[in-house]
């Protein structure tokens, strides 16, 4: 085939995907960058405001010797988003532990794996509603169980202090037996058993084997799970906030994702919402670049 003809054939194969990519990814990204310089409520004509959205979002001023953010909500919600990500290492540790326990000669291993994976399969609005019910102050299973042992449980989702931990519990329950555990299991099965045998001969105990063999050899998997979880974490929190708490109480569970949604589709501040989205984009870009810089390097020692 001639080079040109070859290009043409390949182009034919790529076209359907490219059109979708162009219309629903590439152009929207450009449009979003443009939109972030406008004020627009979609009902009237857009108004060019230059960098005003950015300064409103990220800027601040001094008042009576204290620094005030122009948009304190944004920083609070960014903090919320970060706070909810504390659950990531906990969840990963539990996934790894489950995987290690499952990787022994366990009977009914597939059954256990399927049970742990159930919440991941069911994940979505239905489970969030279920947990809203579970956490219900009056009728919820959790408070009923607590009442049984004589403890009066809080209003999990309606208390400022308990709302965030409650959401973390939900996410932990949903994800700890999910894809991370499966990935860890796959990683564990790739570790040659001779290494453990050699370690046993050298007199290494279980903990030593874990720190010297298992964990280092799994570090690429760990890194992958961590980075993808962080990227997802920055964008996450919309569904649970929308379904379970409406971002409350008092903004305790509003994340950046939910804030963008509210600005765009509740208050119709398309420009400002795009600005927040661009900032989120930059954050995620940074995480991804860190991943590219360090993720390529294998951290294992064999």
């Amino acid at each position: 085939m001639m080079g040109r003809q070859r290009n043409l054939v390949a182009f034919g194969f790529l076209t359907p995907n490219f059109i979708g990519f162009l219309v629903f990814v590439f152009l929207p990204v450009l449009a979003a960058i443009g939109l972030s310089f406008f004020r627009w409520d979609i009902f009237h004509a857009p108004e060019f405001v230059g960098l005003e959205n950015y300064s409103n979002l990220l800027g601040g001023y001094w008042e009576d010797g204290t620094f005030q953010w122009n948009d304190p909500h944004f920083w609070k919600y960014l903090w919320n988003t970060l706070f909810l990500m504390i659950g990531i290492p906990v969840s990963m540790a539990l996934s790894l532990f489950l995987a290690i326990v499952l990787n022994q000669q366990i009977r009914a291993r597939n059954l256990f794996r399927a049970i742990f994976y159930l919440p991941t399969i069911c994940a979505g609005i239905a489970l969030l509603l279920l947990w809203k019910f579970m956490f219900n102050e009056e009728f919820g299973l959790i408070n009923r169980a607590l009442a049984w042992i004589g403890v009066r449980g809080p209003g999990w989702l309606t208390s400022y202090h308990w709302a965030k931990p409650s959401l973390m519990i939900v996410s932990l329950w949903t994800h700890m037996g999910g894809s991370s555990m499966i990935l860890y299991l796959a990683g564990l099965q790739c570790i040659p058993p001779e290494l453990y045998e050699a370690a046993s001969i050298d007199g290494a105990g279980a903990w030593k084997k874990f720190t010297a063999i298992t964990f280092p050899l799994l570090s690429p998997t760990t890194f992958f799970i961590f980075i993808t979880s962080v990227i997802r974490g920055f964008q996450g929190g919309f569904e649970s906030a929308y379904i379970m708490t409406e971002g409350g109480p008092n903004g305790a569970t509003t994340t950046i994702g939910y804030y963008i949604y509210n600005h765009a589709f509740q208050w119709f501040n398309m420009g400002y919402a795009s600005t927040i989205a661009m900032v989120l984009f930059v954050i995620i870009l940074t995480v991804t670049l860190i991943n590219w810089r360090y993720g390529g390097r294998k951290v294992e020692y064999v």
Binding site: F24, P28, A264, M270, I284, T288
Partner: peptide
């Protein structure tokens, strides 16, 4: 590389379109 673009970036212009 476009996989890392957050949904929140593209959803607003897509909605407008």
């Amino acid at each position: 590389a476009t996989m890392m673009i957050p949904v929140s970036v593209t959803m607003i212009p897509t909605f407008i379109l």
